[in-house]
């Protein structure tokens, strides 16, 4: 057990989180379907969570993991409200295409 759980460099976690975050950013710009854009935001949140947990373990401080717990709570609330906005939008425009929504432009 002692030999198994030992030593992944902290840099690797940072790189993995950066990759996941950039995939999320790319996905938000890449797709027009609002549901997929929500999912890409979830990918970004997960990347940030992973990095926060890695730093929390590195500094031996459980405050980081509590913070990740709160991030997940806020993400769950955000998804509930966001998806209901999406349902209302679909009811009005019959599509989830975000380019249809450019009438919101000021």
């Amino acid at each position: 057990m002692d030999a198994i759980i030992k030593g992944v460099p902290l840099n690797w976690y940072i790189i993995l989180s950066a990759v996941l975050f950039c995939i999320g950013v790319m996905g938000v710009l890449f797709r027009r379907n609002a549901i997929i854009i929500f999912m890409c935001i979830e990918i970004m949140l997960t990347a940030v969570n992973l990095l926060t947990v890695a730093f929390s373990v590195y500094h031996n401080d459980s405050g980081g993991q509590v913070f990740v717990f709160f991030t997940m709570a806020v993400a769950a609330a955000e998804v509930a409200v966001g998806l209901s906005i999406l349902v209302v939008m679909y009811r009005n425009t019959r599509s989830t295409d975000i380019d249809v929504l450019n009438r919101l432009r000021g």
């Binding site: 759980i5 030992k6 460099p9 902290l10 950066a18 890695a54 373990v57 401080d61 459980s62």
Partner: peptide, 22 residues
């Protein structure tokens, strides 16, 4: 940009066994 800004950081190992904080 992210990777190149992290290039100068030194690499440290995460010791996760004896922490027990999770």
């Amino acid at each position: 940009v992210m990777v190149s800004s992290l290039k100068v950081a030194d690499s440290m190992e995460v010791q996760s066994l004896h922490s027990g904080i999770g």
